[in-house]
Design a protein around this nucleic acid. Structure first.
Lengths: 154, 154
DNA sequence: CTCCCCTTGATGACGCGTCAACCTACGATG
DNA sequence: CATCGTAGGTTGACGCGTCATCAAGGGGAG
């Protein structure tokens, strides 16, 4: 197809800014979570999913699906979180292979404690700096790109 | 300030799409690099920086600055890359503490081999799906956000 | 010149995520 | 109901990044 082999200068800068931005946002967010609630980003994500579910219980398979994670990753993380008392493992009544993950009181307290400041940090570092028109564009663009890359990736 | 404690639904979805997109893009890119050139994303980044420098040599400190990395991270990675013959360590003539990292022939070959397909993947998964107006917006927005978050983070 | 403090880089321990191997249980098929 | 393929989950080994610590050189103040 005789495409130019490298990115042009503008594309290179936009791509770098995109990556640098994500790294910087990740760093700020996880530092904030760790400081205010003693949670890692992954732990917070698990707790949020559980707290959004009706009973505070989800099957491991569901959690993996929602978070887009490997089963192994979740298993390791849940083991560590269980040792800290944030979640509890239970047997699955309808499938003897399955494993349920339950939010404990301590886990609920941790996520309730962390959520307001975390949300505020996201607004401060992201949404507050955008105009409505820009947010419209981002919404459309992110969805289209995500669609495109998931089709490309598999 | 009496802000709403949580993100509203739209913000939550945009934030999730933003993060999912980055994760998906990272996965596709590193898989492509590993498959086509046997390089990890970090290794590729180091090789690109070195290949952009006039003599193919940079001080470790410079590399850390360009990449925004910890000294320790670079040191560990360079040691592994040295064992694979991608780079070579040299003493720094003007500062006996310093350490220079030199691109070897094998390293140059690897990055030259990887770059075209990697660039094409970035275009295919990112730039080709954007209109010019959207790219304009992204450029402005990413720069502003990066500026904002680096001011917030420190 | 001589301290003293800071910078530079290397190293080891540790935490987290990925990969491969494994086990158990489900469920379709014969 | 016996079998076989597959899904769900756990575990251990390994790789990479972070953190704390260390050694050693630079560079300024006195």
């Amino acid at each position: 197809m005789a495409r130019p082999p490298r990115l042009d200068e503008r594309q290179r800068l936009v791509w770098k800014a995109y990556r640098d931005l994500y790294e910087a946002l990740s760093a700020v967010m996880s530092e904030q979570l760790l400081r205010d609630a003693g949670l890692s980003g992954s732990e917070y994500a698990v707790l949020v999913e559980l707290s959004h579910s009706p009973e505070g219980v989800l099957r491991a398979r569901e959690l993996c699906g929602e978070l887009g994670w490997d089963r192994s990753r979740l298993s390791h993380l849940v083991r560590r979180m269980e040792q800290r008392g944030l979640v509890a493992r239970e047997e699955c009544s309808e499938d003897a292979r399955g494993s349920m993950v339950r939010l404990t009181d301590a886990g609920l307290a941790a996520v309730d404690d962390a959520a307001p400041e975390h949300s505020e940090a996201i607004r401060r570092c992201f949404f507050n700096v955008l105009t409505n028109r820009e947010l419209d564009t981002l919404e459309v663009v992110f969805d289209r790109l995500l669609d495109n890359v998931t089709r490309d990736g598999s």
